[in-house]
């Protein structure tokens, strides 16, 4: 819980710095987050490469492994569609936002440029909060629903931004499942959204 609050504090601090214009100029001019992500990916890779047991889970479940991103994708699309329909909005629009799988940059760009800009902003917010929720709630999701739940919640982001927390709370043996699922879902985002809308 302490870790969750510290993590949240960094995010909120970033929002406040930016809203009140206290962001250091060099941060605005240079998009350092890309390089920070590269550094993080390398570190996660090193952590995985040092762990020799993580390969073994791939030998255990082949059909199961393929079914992970499929079940997450179907559940995400249908779940978002039903939720949106329940507040008297379009089932189809709900499915399209759900097919973003947390990949907020790409999904919001596709939706706003090919369909509607307001729905694009909704997709941006919804998928950002999905990533944020997954980062913050990973330990609680593992306790309530098992080790697969953070991977499901993370969607496409389980291959990069949320991979470190999944590795930490589900265990290193789930890192390759998260990676595989995230890669498949990331590839599906630009394919599924135009098909749904």
């Amino acid at each position: 819980m302490k870790g969750t609050l510290i993590t949240l504090l960094f995010f909120v601090s970033g929002c406040l710095l930016s809203v009140y214009g206290y962001t250091p100029q060099f941060l605005v001019e240079n998009d350092l987050s890309t390089y920070a992500l590269y550094a993080l990916m390398t570190l996660v890779g090193v952590s995985l490469g040092m762990d020799e047991s993580s390969i073994n889970i791939l030998k255990k479940a082949n059909l199961g492994l393929v079914l992970v991103p499929i079940s997450i994708g179907v559940g995400s699309i249908v779940g978002s569609g039903i939720a949106y329909w329940m507040i008297a909005e379009s089932f189809t629009e709900g499915m399209a936002v759900g097919a973003g799988f947390g990949y907020y940059s790409l999904s919001s760009i596709i939706i706003s440029s090919t369909y509607d800009s307001i729905l694009g902003v909704i997709a941006l917010l919804s998928n950002i909060s999905r990533e944020l929720f997954s980062l913050l709630m990973a330990p609680i999701l593992v306790k309530l629903f098992g080790k697969m739940a953070p991977i499901a919640s993370s969607g496409a982001t389980s291959m990069d931004t949320t991979l470190p927390v999944i590795t930490r709370f589900s265990g290193k043996e789930y890192a390759l499942i998260a990676l595989f699922s995230g890669i498949v879902l990331t590839i599906l985002v630009p394919l599924l959204i135009p098909l749904i809308l």
């Binding site: 249908v78 999905r130 080790k147």
Partner: peptide, 24 residues
Amino acid sequence: KALVLTIGGIAGSIVCSYFVYRKY
């Protein structure tokens, strides 16, 4: 609206993948 969609998507994916998790 975004929050409703987030909750729906996360709940749906956790429920669906739970069956895969249990079986495999």
